[in-house]
Amino acid sequence: MRTSTPARIGQYTALLAYLVFLAFPFLWLVSTAFKPPRELGSLHPTWIPKDPTLGNFRQAFDEQPLLQAALNSLLAALAAAVVAVLIATPMAYVVARRRTRLAKAVTGWVVVSQAFPFVLLIIPLFLVLKNLRLINSVPGLVLVYVVWALPFALWMLAGYVRAVPPELEEAAAVDGAGRVRTLVSVTAPLLAPGIVATGLFAFITAWNEFFFALVLLKTPEKQTLPVVLTHFIGAEGVADLGPLAAAAFLATLPSLVVFAVIQRRITGGMLTGAVKS
């Protein structure tokens, strides 16, 4: 199909507008992160810092326990991702391969779990974790993150399992491989990329998560990055912009890098999961 030249010009103008809209806040964050205090206080801020500096980053690390927070975030996100994938993969396999009542119930739960506001979940969880003495601890947060990541992990993994033809497993069975052997040496290797993508996605969502961490972690040395970032904003909403921007920029980098790696797989997995159920 041919598109006329004026139409093409219109399309490129629109696309350019989208690009600007999507990119400018992030560019402004980066720009602010590298500006010295004098430029931040100026009434005519510029896009490109005239006198770029790393001072904001140093100050950010001095003001808040960013390294400890990053470590907490890393531990919580890593543990949550690994556990979620380990327990979700077998269930996703069953859900994808067999149309039982269980599969329907799981799909139903995935949908319902999206609709419930977190307050309704966090108050009872808070009480339960308090009884287990897991408030203000990273393991307690990991428990919450695992359950919170499960619906999406199940959804995606079930999509990946469906993409593995059952005929392959049947062929292995014909050749005399037992059930476990079939799963380990035929299905698992084919699922591996999907499992890694799901795990990385669970990692990012946990790394980015704010609400549960805000409620469950009380002392600064236990808190995760997103919670510590909000401490840069004072009680009256006044913030030291430079360090705030620098810390926010650093906290985003892991998410951006990991997401860039898995983006294609995530969108693919989401949609196979969606189309087939």
Binding site: L29, W207, P226, L229, A248
Partner: peptide, 11 residues
């Protein structure tokens, strides 16, 4: 999509 919501707010 990938950014922490807190960072989106800060930005």
């Amino acid at each position: 999509w990938a950014m922490p919501e807190v960072v989106v707010g800060i930005m």
